Amino acid sequence: MEQPIQRHARVDVADVLRGLAVMGIILLHSIEHFNFYSFPDASTQSVWLNFSDKAIWDGLFFLFGGKAYAVFALLFGFSYFIQYDNQRLRGRDFRLRFCWRLVLLFILGNINAAFFTGEVLVLYSLVGFILPLACRLRDKWIFVLACVLLVQPLPLYYIVRTIFDPEFAAPVLPTGSLWAATFEVQGHGTFLETLRVNLWEGQLASLAWAWDHGRVFQTAALFLFGYLIGRRGLFLKENLKFWNKVLCGSLVAFFPLYGLGNMLPDFVSNPAVRTPLLLVVSSLYKFAFMLLLVSAVLNAYYRTNLQQRMNTFIPYGRMSLTNYITQSIIGSMLFYNWGFSLHDDLGITASVLVGALIFVLQLTFCRWWLRHHSHGPLEYLWKRATWLK
């Protein structure tokens, strides 16, 4: 009798985390007006509405800013392990196939980038090659490599170089003209002009921003940490004690790092030291807060009676690629000139309500779609193209 093919079962809590992360992303993108940053004149609004706008802006960025993307990146590495190990169990080497999958992601990312300059899929498709290169290393070496990347080695080099050479100035990629071109087309361009500028100037500006702000090293580190989580089975209930330790450790680490980040501008006057040092510290405290969120969600999922309610996010997480790209299309249409041009009509409070409405509509669609299909539309196309079937 033929033995059944072994494979890893889908981990529901990973889909919950992914769904929560993409929800956080749509709320942030909505209040940013999808990287447009054009808003109604505050002087025409009431005091209470201005207060609400600031509270929502600060609250959402504290909770999700740099953390929702971090969870998304962590789960990208986790998903690679599941795919890689499923093929290993069948006697196949998935690494070259994953490289082709990254090429396909690059194409999907550029479709997304045509509508939204702040997208991350292109960055993921470039940085993702670290996974097939490192996946056969021993756990301790993957962990060491991830830690080195997490502490931002290039900014650390800039700090040391400046200490020994006060005349040294860290290079910054010139992006002023690129951002100016994207803002101009977002405010005044036609549909085709928006696509053209976003695909060239917008993508160059976005990738340069990711490089200057440490996202390249941080993303690579998160991919590797996610891969290790998969290899060690840490999202399974029997490993919840590990996340209890992570919860305590991240709480202890976050507040001193966050306080240090707020204090640095007052105590480090040299911008050549202050800027890269702030980047290193902010990268670490955002990582700590991301771990706090992940461990809190895992504890809530496995230890409380909230599991059924949290499972509501599973369809949204399973269709994260479809949701992420359609968010960009909808947001571009709502806020840019080629669409409804609502950027100077909707303040932050109204915009977060719009983002919440988009989330609810997408979640409703996901629940309906997955009752009839095993994959989301773009997830299905990506999978079929991966295997050339």
Rank of each mutant, 00 (worst) to 15 (best):
T304N: 14
T304Y: 08
T304M: 14
T304G: 15
T304Q: 14
N305T: 09
N305I: 03
N305F: 06
N305A: 14
L306F: 09
L306R: 13
L306N: 09
L306E: 08
Q307D: 08
Q307S: 15
Q307W: 02
Q308D: 13
R309S: 13
R309T: 11
R309F: 06
R309I: 08
R309M: 11
M310P: 03
M310A: 08
N311L: 11
N311K: 13
T312L: 13
T312H: 05
T312D: 10
T312Y: 03
T312W: 02
T312N: 12
F313M: 15
F313I: 11
F313V: 12
F313K: 01
F313G: 02
I314N: 05
I314F: 00
I314T: 13
I314W: 00
P315L: 05
P315G: 07
P315D: 07
P315T: 04
Y316K: 10
Y316L: 15
Y316Q: 12
Y316F: 11
G317L: 07
G317K: 05
R318I: 08
R318T: 09
R318D: 05
R318C: 04
R318H: 04
M319W: 00
M319K: 06
M319P: 02
M319T: 15
M319S: 06
S320T: 13
S320N: 11
L321C: 06
L321T: 06
T322L: 05
T322Y: 00
T322C: 07
T322E: 07
T322A: 04
N323Q: 07
N323A: 07
N323W: 03
Y324V: 04
I325V: 14
I325M: 13
I325R: 04
I325E: 03
T326K: 01
Q327A: 06
S328N: 09
S328V: 02
S328R: 01
S328C: 11
S328W: 01
S328T: 07
I329E: 07
I330F: 03
I330Y: 02
I330D: 01
I330Q: 03
I330S: 00
I330M: 10
G331E: 12
G331W: 01
S332N: 08
S332P: 11
S332D: 08
S332H: 02
S332W: 04
M333K: 05
M333V: 13
M333W: 10
M333R: 00
M333L: 15
M333S: 12
L334M: 12
L334V: 09
F335Q: 03
F335K: 03
F335L: 12
F335I: 05
F335N: 03
Y336P: 03
Y336D: 10
Y336F: 14
Y336Q: 13
Y336I: 04
Y336E: 07
N337H: 15
N337W: 09
N337M: 11
N337F: 12
W338K: 04
W338R: 08
W338S: 12
G339K: 01
G339Y: 03
F340P: 04
S341H: 14
S341D: 15
S341Y: 10
S341P: 01
L342N: 05
L342P: 00
D344C: 14
D344G: 09
D344L: 12
D345Y: 09
D345C: 11
D345I: 07
L346Y: 01
L346N: 03
L346Q: 05
L346I: 10
G347P: 01
